[in-house]
Design a protein around this nucleic acid. Structure first.
Lengths: 350, 350
DNA sequence: CTGAAAGCGCTTACAG
DNA sequence: CTGAAAGCGCTTACAG
């Protein structure tokens, strides 16, 4: 007769140990622990004492297998930068999500990867979670391919900062109103009299930045004699952004305003402006997006748009948990408002 | 006879389905998938084709239960700030750890909590992982209590940025040489002729900052006519740090140099100095610690100490995985070097 | 109120 | 080279 070997590390104390010690069946222990029982108070008390005394902690692996539920959400961050948490906008979303999940007794599995790893090694296949949350980068073709790959996991998906709801799969998006943010920035700058604009964008396409640009363009195009040029800022690092902005300033007439795709790029551009001998905001105005702590660090204080990053994370968590419990997403497109925050890097409306 | 109900969501395709379809036993499927088998090539090929065709993905929950191994590491961040990833020093450590674990086919469960949650609700007890990594804050009494609580999980522990190795438990620490960093900063400042120093520290005791302070003090105390005062900066936020520094400048004679406990506090202090009409570095020198991107954003560029945060995370991962595979930590105290990085917020040595 | 039995989906030592 | 059986630690519908 076969005699299977014990697992490498036998579990110290199981539900059977508690049951034996308390003189009851494992079922009663389970019922007491999960508050599901019709168990007499005396028995319940006795069981709880044994649990305490033996230091019993249920095996969540066994529970997961039995109930085929994981109480786990996977969070995927697909970006080029191996330092995938370096952007405060991303970390705020992750924090909001984690905090919500913790409060709901769910765990978060965090994984970052490059788009190429996603494509080639399917580095997310081994994540056994009840649902997935993802932050994707790259152009829309790549992103929608990523989404269809994610869908093969057969669990509900929430995408953060995606602009359009993927069709035909169990998915919702949570984003902020970047289009409106762009509109507000453009309106403010137009009111100061600015007409010629540069916008700083990274090589990689971020859905949120694209939306900001569209919002900006919608306002600018409505005014005669305006222009909006894009300055490509490579990997959106400080060095490249500063260098490319400086090169642009050296080669052509400076614009009235430079609109950073985010705060970090705006700050790099401010340095480039001062390298070039331009005063802010007298000679040139600069704006950012996101309003994380860095916006305070610069002189003058940056005009920017306050993001709802933490709220996006929380909302992603709450929608996903609701979906898991109810069977459907109550909304598939959730848009949170943004708030314009004027600083001293722009002039007041004339 | 009892007829237990099916779990809520039955698994789509199991190893049995593959076995039946391929006309073999589940065991052969398992052997092929895990490369453990003495299975004929023909059978193996047939099995792999069925796996492909049915889109079979093994249940990791079942595997975990069977092998009582989780292939999961828990990461606990115990800080006051609910925005527990706001410090770039912490995110860099988390990223380094995650990347290492992913490369080793381990998953990371991330959880942040306040010290009070740790104390009262044992919010980490439900994390079933093969090992734990933690970043702890608070005074040494509180931290060592946290460590003893963590030890009840009965898994190996790696502490990041802890200064002393807890005794009697299965634990290692990985940190950078903050004491040496402090020494280097102090040596540099002393060489510029500075004698009177303020150091900015938050209310909460961080082991790393305490070590920095000790390193600074060790150098300063060796020189006659020097002084080192601590300016308490509350929650180390920009506002409080700036405000408290400004208040200190208003109430007593300005020092020769202000040493920030980290870059963020140093930058806030730079603002306070310029609020107070002091020029940097002519009237007063300022230094930071950590050298994350923000140090570039300020004018003048901050003199600081480059941290090994990402490397700390990677090393924590590699030591923990090694411990899991070999049974013991090869070292229990790992200290990574730091690198002094002079900027323009201090003068060159005279 | 309480328990015996079945089964979640795997893996392993052993016999054939 | 291949398979039958046992068991990891739970939970549930049902019978008593």
């Amino acid at each position: 007769m076969a005699k299977p070997q014990r697992p490498a590390v036998a579990r110290s104390v199981t539900i059977k140990d508690v049951a034996r010690e308390a003189g009851v069946s494992a079922m009663s222990v389970s019922n007491v622990l999960n508050g599901r029982g019709r168990v007499s108070e005396a028995t319940a008390n006795r069981i709880m004492q044994v649990v305490e005394r033996l230091g019993y902690r249920p095996s969540v692996a066994a529970r997961r297998l039995r109930l085929s539920q994981q109480w786990t959400i996977g969070m995927l961050i697909v970006v080029e930068d191996p330092d995938f948490l370096s952007d405060p906008f991303i970390t705020a979303q992750v924090t909001g999500l984690t905090n919500y999940l913790t409060a709901s007794s769910y765990s978060l599995i965090l994984r970052g990867m490059k788009p190429s790893d996603f494509r080639t090694t399917g580095l997310f296949q081994d994540i056994e979670a009840d649902g997935m949350v993802a932050i994707l980068s790259g152009d829309s073709v790549q992103r929608s391919w990523f989404v269809s790959e994610l869908a093969t996991l057969q669990v509900p998906i929430v995408l953060m900062q995606e602009q359009t709801v993927p069709q035909g799969i169990d998915c919702a998006i949570v984003r902020q109103d970047d289009f409106d943010g762009g509109r507000q920035v453009a309106s403010h700058l137009l009111a100061t009299g600015a007409r010629r604009f540069w916008m700083l964008l990274p090589q990689v396409e971020w859905a949120a930045m694209t939306a900001r640009k569209k919002g900006i363009a919608s306002r600018i195009e409505a005014v005669d004699g305006t222009s909006l040029d894009v300055i490509a800022c490579g990997d959106e690092s400080y060095c490249v952004t500063r260098g490319n902005t400086l090169a642009a300033l050296a080669s052509r007439k400076a614009p009235d305003a430079i609109i950073g795709g985010n705060d970090q790029m705006a700050i790099a551009a401010m340095k480039a402006c001062s390298d070039h001998g331009l005063r802010i905001p007298a000679d040139i105005q600069v704006t950012g997006f996101n309003a994380f702590d860095t916006w305070r660090y610069v002189e003058p204080v940056l005009t920017t748009v306050r993001s709802a990053a933490h709220a996006i994370g929380e909302r992603a968590g709450s929608e996903l948990i609701h979906r898991l419990q109810s069977g459907t997403f109550r909304e598939t497109e959730i848009v949170l408002p943004v708030q314009f925050q004027p600083g001293s890097s722009t002039r007041s409306s004339s």
